[in-house]
């Protein structure tokens, strides 16, 4: 039986369909999860996809964080379930306290929508084991509030513990501190990143198929669990 990967839909989520498709392309079973249901439907891992949950009202991810499904996600993550937050999903995971720091308005204020080269800084997480450490992958970035921000102490901790998972390999597109594009929890099970691996799963629709590695990685992680 293939692994069941949950994909959450909030009001305003955009990329749940692409995320589900990426799961299927990698050989997993995509399971739709609804923001209003405190039910993870026995999934093995969860993806919090991109978009503008609750219209980005108050702050990006601030309202979604309190939705019934997120209560269950936080509980499951604390028991080691792999969780991936992409773009708005990354913002939700930071607001929920599963990942440290916050995502703030891009330096220069522009919404950035372009393909970005990312350096894979850590391949020891549940979502990056299929990559070689130091590999460079081409993934679309599309966000207006993607500038990673944390205190110097937290940034030093993340660097010291190998929890900076992805860094922008070229110019820093949004002023993100230390060029950070993605980070992980201390146990490497929860990962958040601003670029969109689910949009880079095949040559026909994306700049590469480099994003698939994240979905293959988590299937390994839950099968080996």
């Amino acid at each position: 039986m293939s692994a069941r990967i949950g994909v959450i839909t909030f009001p305003g989520t955009l990329d749940d369909v692409d995320a589900s498709r990426a799961v299927k392309l990698a050989g997993g079973e995509a399971v739709s999860l609804w923001h209003g249901d405190a039910d993870l439907k026995n999934v093995d891992a969860v993806i919090v996809p991109g978009g503008f949950s609750y219209g980005d009202y108050l702050r990006c991810g601030a309202i979604a964080r309190f939705s019934p499904v997120m209560g269950k996600v936080v509980e499951a993550a604390q028991k080691g379930m792999p969780v991936l937050g992409i773009c708005n999903g990354f913002q939700v995971l930071c607001e929920a306290g599963l990942l440290p720091g916050a995502l703030t308005r891009n330096a220069g204020l522009h919404f950035v929508c372009r393909d970005e080269w990312l350096k894979v800084e850590s391949n020891t997480t549940a979502w990056t084991s299929r990559y070689e450490a130091g590999a460079e992958i081409l993934i679309p970035l599309k966000s207006g509030e993607g500038r990673y921000q944390a205190s110097e102490k937290v940034l030093d901790e993340l660097e010291g513990e190998g929890r900076v998972v992805f860094r922008f390999a070229g110019d820093n597109p949004n002023g993100s501190q230390r060029g950070i594009a993605g980070i992980s929890s201390a146990n490497g099970r929860v990962v958040g990143l601003m670029p969109h691996p689910e949009h880079a799963t095949e040559a026909l629709t994306g700049p590469s198929d480099d994003g698939l590695g994240m979905f293959y990685s988590v299937l390994d992680a839950v099968v080996n669990a």
Partner: peptide
């Protein structure tokens, strides 16, 4: 808890 994100 809601109105401000005390990280930022």
């Amino acid at each position: 808890s809601l109105l401000a994100n005390t990280v930022i």
